[in-house]
Design a protein around this nucleic acid. Structure first.
Length: 356
DNA sequence: AAGAGCACCAACCGCACATAG
DNA sequence: GCTATGTGCGGTTGGTGCTCT
């Protein structure tokens, strides 16, 4: 037993609505309400299926429809909610007054998906893409920079041009550090197989980046911590002298490129496993604070969209915590996070307020 | 200038669920 | 409890306009 078709009459009109039809539909609903959608077309004098009328009204004719592009705040809410709810477009639309599920769905499929992919984030899981493409990008960025074919590749990083690509390189560098932090000590040497080569500099030969691949696969956030450099507390002991070179290069990079940044002694967490080195802008500096903690930013967002205070976080919270930080960081710096392109395409928009 | 390719988005389709009889 | 019907939702399609070659 199948469902009866929504519109039995084969003669009902399909396709784009004319202004005349719109007017008929609007007039009828404003006078009588929609009532039964199935009966509405006849009563309103429309040769349309009731379903089509409903869709037209909900997605286009409703008086409270908000037209135009999505704001940064709306984008942020959409991404955050999508990480929690998935493709529940109507549920997401409930949190965005004036926006329809169809509009959000279209926006997601045509814009947000691509942006997430460009950022190396899986739009389904909201986790960083951890396939070999990441290693390819890493090879591309590092291999394409000035420190190819040098004895000490990290020193060269201090001399490179002031462009946003360096930011991305640094973030990838951080990914390396995080991967070191995440991987257990004494990894088998077999893990070194297949590691990328940066000019003459091969990971695993000069430095003991054992387990790099496994580490990358476990990176919780590859690109988010622009102003924060995380290193394992005991990574030097674990990973050999090269680790200190990496840290010095990164620290010097901040000192050179962002002289306004200060080392934040109060914000350094120190646990058994990891030491977080934080760099912030002085409060007297007129430019906005560079760092916004992941926890505070996501809480603000979730409070905004869920004022009841009932937690709707899922197990993917790590992923969208990173999102919150990434988004707010870029907003705070008057830079659109959507322009961040770790695949090597650098947007023309200059970074603001950071001396970059 | 023309056509191919692409992006966008309104609208359609089919399924699932709720509810009335 | 079963069936028919109404409604809502998410996936997909196809038309349109823009860009690129």
């Amino acid at each position: 037993m199948g469902r009866s078709p929504c519109c039995e009459e084969a003669s009902v009109k399909k396709g784009p609505w004319t202004p005349k039809e719109d007017q008929k539909l609007m007039d009828y609903i404003q006078k009588h309400g929609h009532g039964s959608w199935r009966n509405l077309p006849k009563l309103a004098g429309l040769n349309r299926c009731g379903k089509s009328c409903r869709l037209r009204w909900i997605n286009y004719l409703r008086p409270d429809i908000k037209r135009g592009g999505f704001s940064k705040e709306e984008e942020h809410i959409i991404v955050t909610l999508h990480s929690v709810l998935g493709n529940k477009w109507s549920a997401i639309a409930n949190h965005l007054p004036g926006r329809t599920d169809n509009e959000i769905k279209n926006f997601w499929n045509t814009h947000m998906k691509k942006k997430l992919l460009k950022m190396g984030i899986d739009p389904v899981t909201h986790m960083p893409k951890t396939d070999l493409n990441l290693l390819e990008r890493l090879t591309h960025f590092l291999g394409g920079s000035n420190f190819v074919n040098t004895m000490n590749p990290w020193d060269s990083a201090l001399r490179v041009q002031e462009d946003t690509e360096n930011v991305i390189r640094l973030q990838l560098l951080q990914s390396l550090l995080q991967s070191i932090a995440n991987c257990p000590p004494n990894m088998e040497a077999s893990n070194l197989m297949g590691l990328p080569t940066f000019g003459d500099f091969q990971l695993g030969s000069n430095c003991q980046f054992d387990g790099l691949v496994d580490g990358l696969l476990g990176i919780p956030s590859s690109f988010s911590n622009l102003g924060e450099l995380q290193v394992p507390k005991d990574y030097e002991a674990l990973k050999g002298p090269c680790a200190s070179v990496v840290e010095k290069a990164s620290t010097d990079w901040f000192a050179t490129k962002m002289p306004d940044l200060v080392y934040d002694n109060d914000n350094n967490c120190s646990t058994d496993n990891c030491m977080t080195s934080s760099y912030i802008l002085p409060s007297s500096n007129p430019t906005p604070t560079l760092m916004v903690s992941a926890a505070s930013s996501i809480d603000q967002t979730m409070d905004q969209i869920n004022p009841t205070g009932i937690s709707i976080r899922s197990s993917t919270s790590t992923a969208f915590e990173d999102w919150g930080e990434l988004n707010l960081d870029y907003q705070a710096r008057d830079h659109q996070w959507t322009d961040f392109r770790p695949n090597g395409i650098i947007d023309d928009t200059p970074l603001q307020n950071t001396g970059l």
